[in-house]
Simulated scan of single mutants.
Amino acid sequence: MPERTLTFHRPVPGAARTPGGWQLTWRGCAVMGIVNATPDSFSDGGQHGAPAQALAHARALHAAGALVVDVGGESTRPGADPVPAAEELDRILPVVRALADDGAAVISIDTLKPEVADAALRAGAHLINDVSGLRDPDMLRVCAEHGAPACIMHMQGEPRTMQRRPHYDDVVAEVHGYLTAQADRALAGGIPSVLLDPGIGFGKTLEHNLTLLRALPRLSAGPHAVLVGASRKRLIDWLAGAPHAADRDPGSLAVHLHAARAGAAMVRVHDVAGHVQALRVQAALEVHHG
């Protein structure tokens, strides 16, 4: 299995200090666990909306084998309305501070707002997951100032409108081109390391999503680690008839096992324990290829 690395310019749990910074290294496909500190999450009905609930859930996901826990205080589901920065921070900062005090988990923050990213990194977060793909130059600056890697995601439009009529002339070329250009920009701007996320379900039709998933080997063959997040998304319902998000874990596993085989370095999931188990079995079955 290939070795993966993310570089940070600050101490990170589990990372080794090197002349170039703190390096977090793993083999194969790691798991990022989703912590929705929101009252309106599409997948879990806001059951982790209170900070104490979100914190307990984050700790449980880390214990279940998540390499990274991804804490978000604003829903980015299709049609979602923006949340004021102060409200987003009220939701996530108690979770971030407590996790940072634990000193065990690598903490990612799922946010579009540079001011939220800055406050969260000051509170002890390590990585920024920006679904807008560093469109805002202030987000790039914040990550660079803190020496924090960024997960750069492709999204056509913005959450409120992205699923109305998504259109591409060549979805693979456009998404890959955008991610590659943004990665170059990020590294040139001082961000130490990046993850690239093709943005399954973010401004894409079913066919766009399937085309991108089939083309993952091309994106994964590049110099940057690739993250895939299809967990409980509408794609699973379209393919397998699962209208309720909570019933989509089996389909999510199928997509993410495909992503791992196609070279993804990380998958972003709700069901951490199930994915950790499935990925270990798949890795064992494929060891003869390595």
Results as ranks from 00 to 15, higher is better:
A85W: 05
A86W: 07
A86R: 11
E87Y: 03
E87T: 15
E87H: 09
L89S: 07
L89F: 03
D90C: 14
R91I: 13
R91V: 13
L93N: 06
L93G: 05
P94D: 06
V96E: 00
V96C: 13
R97A: 09
R97F: 01
R97P: 10
R97N: 00
L99A: 04
A100E: 07
D101R: 06
D102G: 07
D102L: 08
D102M: 10
D102S: 06
G103R: 00
A104S: 06
A104W: 00
A104Q: 04
A105W: 05
V106K: 07
V106C: 04
V106D: 04
I107D: 02
I109Q: 02
D110Y: 10
T111I: 13
T111A: 10
T111Y: 03
K113E: 07
K113V: 09
E115Y: 03
E115A: 05
V116M: 00
V116E: 02
A117T: 04
D118Q: 12
A119L: 14
A119E: 07
A119N: 07
A120Y: 08
A120H: 07
A120W: 02
L121M: 03
R122Y: 05
R122A: 15
A123L: 03
G124V: 06
A125V: 00
H126C: 14
H126P: 02
L127T: 02
I128V: 14
N129T: 13
D130E: 04
D130F: 12
V131W: 01
V131D: 01
G133S: 01
G133V: 10
G133I: 00
R135M: 09
D136L: 00
D136P: 02
D138R: 15
D138T: 14
L140G: 11
R141N: 13
R141F: 09
V142I: 09
V142T: 08
V142K: 01
C143G: 08
C143H: 05
C143S: 01
C143Y: 10
A144N: 03
A144Y: 01
E145H: 00
E145I: 15
A148G: 12
P149N: 11
P149M: 10
P149A: 13
P149S: 04
A150G: 11
C151D: 10
C151E: 04
M153L: 12
M153K: 05
M153W: 07
M153S: 08
M153C: 08
H154F: 08
H154C: 12
M155K: 03
M155F: 09
M155P: 05
Q156Y: 04
Q156L: 08
P159E: 03
R160T: 15
M162W: 04
M162E: 08
Q163W: 03
R164L: 13
R164P: 13
R165F: 14
H167A: 13
H167V: 09
Y168K: 06
